[in-house]
Design a protein around this nucleic acid. Sequence first.
DNA 1: ATAGGGCTGCAATGGTATTGCAAACTACGG
DNA 2: CCGTAGTTTGCAATACCATTGCAGCCCTAT
Lengths: 138, 138
Amino acid sequence: MIKGLEDILNHKSINPTAMRLLVLEFLLKQSSAISLTDVEKGLEPSDRVTLYRVLKKFGEKGLVHSIDDGSGAPKYALCAEDCVAGHHHDFHVHFFCTACRETSCLTKSKIPQVVLPEGFASEEVNLMVKGTCSKCIP
Amino acid sequence: MIKGLEDILNHKSINPTAMRLLVLEFLLKQSSAISLTDVEKGLEPSDRVTLYRVLKKFGEKGLVHSIDDGSGAPKYALCAEDCVAGHHHDFHVHFFCTACRETSCLTKSKIPQVVLPEGFASEEVNLMVKGTCSKCIP
DNA sequence: ATAGGGCTGCAATGGTATTGCAAACTACGG
DNA sequence: CCGTAGTTTGCAATACCATTGCAGCCCTAT
């Protein structure tokens, strides 16, 4: 199991340290995007700053992408597959459930093409939907 | 002129105080969405907290909407037209130019319909595009 | 005139990212 | 096996930013 985790990191050119393996393992267990504070609580008693830097490195290397769901703190989730360092390909919709307050990636919902005014060039698109998720529908 | 400003506030059931008129006037002069710090600098030497509360009230009453462009601080812009207290209708695209670092409302670019998975109900949609705006194209 | 409610300004709090620095660790060449 | 260089980690400190409490002010209605 741990072996597989190491491979993942190596494949992204990230030195597989104990801390990073722990964070990666924790991320793999999540069903939704989580904040730095969530990681901190799940991996007690780890240092917050270290976790911050681990996630930052993961982001730089294209292992995770961060989502700003308006909660103030960024959420992190593992990238699908084909993200390379520096260029993310996560053109999917992010969903924030106002009931359970979970942020999740709707990898199957692609972001539709957006028509921009003349002279505007798009580099990155982020679509955030808020509402009620399937688990919280009454 | 000031008379017109008062009308705007009254129409939204906001007591027209000096401070609020100033903020509204400042907002009307902007061509892009601005942060609380921007307002503070433009209206020196005003108290930041007061401006914060003014903007908050404007938001509650449907006069302005706030945009989270990922810069850490929310940006504010006047609502188009028919926003009512509590329910915003700003289904337009927000654009962040990575060159001039300005956030603007593309009121003509409507957010396309998003297909959500079964069981998901959408209440609010936010589409943030990052790239280069027409003024910054080489 | 006065009492009450809304508005403002100041001070203080709390949560967050972010950086500097020194200790710990790791990989590697002798 | 040892030491060294580079990476990683943990701690302390800093810097924003939103948000709240409180006290004084203004305006209005009675």
